[in-house]
């Protein structure tokens, strides 16, 4: 059953149709938020807020084919709101934002960061931890494009639509984002042995 049919059913009063949409999209949205904010618990809260916002606003969505794009837009706005909220409170979330200098000081020691608990038990989790932190070290505008493209397989045109910026700007952000990320990983001395991949 397509998203459009489920939306129609939901709008005609069938709440279970919306639950199906949640079930279908929650993993994607959760992982998007997680990669954007870099915090597991926060990602859960923001995901819930995203779906609640979608639940309340779905009747206002004119083009039902744009549901996924619209949902990502909501998730992104919620992430930005959360980011601003934390910034206003002057709460230091190491996972949310790090500047270039602080990132350069992290070095490879983060791979074995004991604060990350059991997540670092395996090499795979170590890679996740490195990438999670590395993504926080690149500019937000590049990070969001990389996440949408690399992990969610959105077309560049769709990303341009979500972010409301020109198509070539998106591609340019992707190019410079990948370069920035490579530099961060190189600064940390991450290599084949650490990631299991050639950088």
């Amino acid at each position: 059953m397509t998203d459009e049919i489920l939306i129609e059913r939901f709008l005609s009063g069938d709440v279970s149709a919306f639950n199906t949409l949640v079930w279908r999209w929650e993993k994607q949205i959760y992982n998007f938020i997680l990669r954007y904010l870099g915090d597991f618990e926060l990602a859960k809260d923001v995901m819930q807020r995203t779906f609640i916002r979608a639940y309340k606003g779905l009747s206002k969505l004119k083009d039902k084919k744009r549901f996924s794009t619209w949902l990502f837009q909501i998730a992104l706005n919620q992430c930005k709101d959360e980011f601003k909220k934390r910034k206003r409170r002057h709460v230091s979330i190491s996972e949310v934002h790090r500047d270039e200098n602080s990132c350069s000081k992290e070095l490879i020691s983060i791979i074995a960061d004991p604060n990350d608990g059991p997540e670092n038990a395996t090499q795979k989790d170590s890679v996740t931890s490195v990438l999670k932190r590395a993504l926080q070290c690149i500019p937000e505008e590049q990070r969001v494009v990389i996440i949408m493209k690399e992990y969610h397989g959105l077309k560049f045109i769709e990303i341009a639509e979500i972010l409301k910026v020109p198509l070539n700007t998106i591609k340019s952000r992707m190019y410079y984002g990948l370069n920035s990320l490579r530099k961060v990983l190189q600064q940390w001395g991450v290599d084949r042995e650490d990631l299991g991949y050639e950088v």
């Binding site: 949640v22 990602a43 995901m47 996740t128 990983l185």
Partner: peptide, 26 residues
């Protein structure tokens, strides 16, 4: 090559399950 390698590295971060039971009711 560097761009492709970085893109491949990013793919190492696999999706995780949200472990949240989000259900809407009437």
């Amino acid at each position: 090559s560097a761009l492709k390698a970085t893109s491949n590295t990013l793919k190492k971060w696999e999706d995780v399950e949200p472990k949240v039971n989000l259900t809407f009711v009437n």
